[in-house]
Design a protein around this nucleic acid. Structure first.
Length: 434
RNA sequence: GUGGGUGUAGCUCAACCGGUAGAGCACUUGAUUGUGGUUCAAGUGGUUGGGGGUUCAAGUCCCCUCACCCACCCCA
């Protein structure tokens, strides 16, 4: 005897209901804008070899350390639900030999990603990202163009006054040099650091920079600056990016404690946050990864990219004044015509009438349940938010017509049965004009 | 992984010091034998998340458990 059990989505994963049109809107806008900049859409598998992320994202990262959905397949291979999008694209670059095609490679992508974290507002175990990668151009023009494209995308969605947080984490060499200096600086204060920061002192001192603990932040006031340790080339690169951004009119702010959590970043890193999001306030982040492709066994090819948290972005779009109304108005225009055949003898006619409406491009539904009172069926049409109702029963059949009812105006008029669909389309178009 | 909060009708929420589980909305039907949104009337709907304990008596008190939310952390 099995107890009745209600199934539900697993923790941190959600059915996207109601918001789907907003997702579609955001995605359409991404396709539109990114293709203007010469990017092609790619789709990579949701599952990759575990090793790809261990090598790509970095063993020391939180993501690889404790947030991956990793499992063995039936042959004992270790696989992982992708926690991010850059490593898979880098893999695709090598596997498909994109290097032999036009340079640089510009691709964008969107889809679900998975991280095993404790869910909260703006953070889910299955979440959605829209990302882009520009591979095989050392910049700094590429860096700037990528950011210009991002800002353009966000502006077209209706965001204003967004500021890009910008930093440079330097080349691999300067980062190592700086890590050493930072460690030496912090070592005497070891006891004052939290457990997390103490651990990072060994594994990845850079990550201590963006701590939120007030005491640690105070301590860091006097810490050596990463900026002072930038090698000449990384330094010049960063200066050039900043100057060009100013020229391009991209508002940005240098945040010298901005350090991203993925190990592959080099030189330029950036993020955009929003106050409207609660604790999980990053809507997008990215940077340059000049060492990643070599790390994955390929040639030394530079790259830069970003990832947008689509779920967070959608939440923000919904908060833009007027955005919802605009979307709603668009959706409203596509509300279906509702066909109601009256009397069980005319049920099949309902099907035919609806088909004829669809044939002229009008969305149509049919209230088939002829046993229910007409009143109740009209109510259903109202619940579907239909404005136009087509009624067809014994009277209409005899006269060779249908009745078209306008719910909003509360008027109705007969239309000849033959070619009625075109006449309905015309009538609706005439009303949409006004 | 660590804290805090919340679970009562489809939804939003009531229910005193433990004493017969309620309201609004929604839904169904009727007033109107073929015309929605207003009004009026009637009606359907509950193992109070689950399990155990205390008690004459538990939605209420105690323990366990599950789920969701928020925060730390982490990042998109």
């Amino acid at each position: 005897m099995t107890a009745k059990r209600r199934f539900q989505t697993v923790k941190g994963m959600h059915d996207l209901v109601g918001k789907v049109p907003v997702y579609a809107y955001v995605e359409a806008k991404a396709r539109e804008v990114f293709s203007l900049y010469g990017y092609d859409e790619v789709r990579t598998p949701v599952v990759e070899e575990t090793e790809l992320f261990v090598r790509g994202v970095g063993e020391g990262s939180e993501i690889v350390g404790k947030q991956m959905y990793t499992f063995d397949d039936k042959k004992g291979r270790s696989l992982t639900l992708r926690p991010e999008g850059t490593a898979p694209v880098a893999r695709a670059y090598l596997q498909n030999n994109w290097a032999s095609g036009p340079r640089p490679v510009k691709v964008f992508y969107m889809g679900p990603y998975f991280r095993y974290e404790r869910p909260q507002e703006g953070r889910y175990r299955q979440f959605h990202q829209i990302g882009a990668e520009l591979i095989d151009d050392p910049g700094p023009c590429s860096d700037v163009e990528l950011l210009v494209m991002l800002v353009r995308f966000l502006e077209e969605l209706g965001f204003e006054d967004l500021e890009v947080g910008l930093n440079s984490v330097g080349d691999v060499e300067c980062r190592q040099r700086y890590s050493k200096r930072l460690r030496e600086f912090l070592e005497p204060y070891r006891e004052e650091l939290g457990a997390d920061s103490r651990r990072r002192l060994e594994t990845n001192p850079l990550r201590i920079l963006d701590t939120k603990a007030p005491g640690e932040r105070e301590l860091l006031e006097n810490a050596p600056r990463l900026f002072d340790d930038l090698g000449g080339r990384a330094h010049d690169h960063f200066q050039e990016v900043r100057e060009q951004l100013v020229q391009a009119g991209v508002a940005h702010r240098v945040e010298d404690r901005l350090v991203r959590g993925l190990d592959y970043y080099t030189r330029t890193v950036f993020e955009i946050t929003s106050a409207g999001l609660g604790a999980q306030n990053a809507i997008l982040g990215g940077g340059r990864y000049d060492g990643l492709i070599a790390e994955l066994g390929g040639p030394s090819v530079p790259g830069i990219g970003f990832a947008i948290g689509e779920d967070r972005l959608v939440d923000l779009v919904l908060k833009i004044p007027g955005a919802l109304a605009r979307l709603d108005a668009e959706a409203h225009r596509r509300k279906p015509v509702c066909v109601i055949p009256i009397g069980s003898a005319y049920r099949r006619h309902g099907m035919t009438l609806a088909q004829e409406l669809r044939a002229v491009g009008l969305p149509a539904i049919c209230e088939f349940d002829s046993l229910r009172p007409l009143k109740a069926r009209l109510k259903q049409a109202a619940r579907h938010e239909c404005r136009w109702i087509v009624l067809f029963g014994e009277d209409e059949a005899r006269k060779g017509e249908v009745v078209l009812r306008d719910f909003r105006e509360r008027t109705q008029a007969p239309i000849p049965r033959d070619g009625f669909a075109a006449a309905v389309a015309e009538r609706i178009a005439a009303h949409e004009e006004r």
